[in-house]
Design a protein around this nucleic acid. Structure first.
Lengths: 141, 141
DNA sequence: TTATAATTGATATTGAATTTCAATATCAAT
DNA sequence: ATTGATATTGAAATTCAATATCAATTATAA
């Protein structure tokens, strides 16, 4: 049993929610894809496992997975939200290829430190941040 | 005549587009507000100048202003796009207050440099980037 | 097994953004 | 100033992702 499933079960129990087949399928589908998929993408994969699964359930389950700390929403401003794994992952920024659409996860601790400094300079108390760099990846150049 | 109006007129002429009263109003409204307003916000202000102005025109004109390099779209992932002045402004990041919603423009050249370095490390050729820090501003703390 | 409450899929709805279309306005050439 | 080609407009319809509604179904604790 994956750590995420354990957490999911614990979260559902704690909240008085139920572990349904659809939720199990969604967690499974979500964990198996390492890419940053949209609801549509996840829905298409989930449908292959269970023809009857509905879009609404995919949206709803992704919300639950977020609340449980298993998934994280990624919004790059192109009109559709994507989801990435959250549990056990460090904070990171994204390099996004405008040609093939790949998401590269990257982080530089020095940048993080300078961001904090920038906030201090403005008397600003940071809670979370987001950094996305759009460009062309190694393969597409 | 503002530099932006000059540019706007030049852009329109170059593209075979027309300088209409609505476009003049929109540029005026856009330049007068220093805040990061959504279409709705700009629309409400524009309507005070000309009751008959339509939402579609506001959307359309903001697109033209972007193409002309006068306005810049800002999408912080809350479902509605905002617009800021672009012409004559340097690149900057945003500190966004989750309490009062203020946008603080900030930049640290060292961060910019490290971002380039991060891209190089991944064989990634950057085109543009976006950094937003959400938190609580000085006044709201 | 049963009672209860959460969950489901289908469908309707929302809200931002875009498109359509007939009427109107702009502007270069006269 | 007038004309004509063409861009533009506002209103309304449409798109699209995301959310809400609801009757039927299912999970779970007793």
């Amino acid at each position: 049993m994956s750590k995420e499933l354990e957490i999911f079960i614990g979260y559902l129990k704690k909240k008085g929610l139920k572990l349904t087949v659809q939720r199990k399928i969604m967690l499974d589908v979500f964990l198996k894809t390492e890419r940053h998929l949209s609801v549509e993408g996840l829905y298409n994969i989930a449908k292959k496992k269970d023809k009857s699964i509905g879009q609404a359930t995919v949206f709803r389950t992704l919300k639950v997975l977020q609340d449980a700390g298993i998934a994280k929403e990624v919004d790059i401003g192109d009109g559709k939200k994507r989801y990435e794994r959250q549990y056990g992952r460090e904070h990171h920024d994204h390099l996004i290829c405008v040609k093939c659409g790949v998401f590269i996860e990257a982080v530089d601790p020095r940048i993080e430190k300078l961001q904090d400094e920038l906030c201090r300079k403005h008397g600003f108390k940071p809670q979370r941040h987001k950094m996305e760099i759009f460009g062309v990846c190694k393969k597409c150049r």
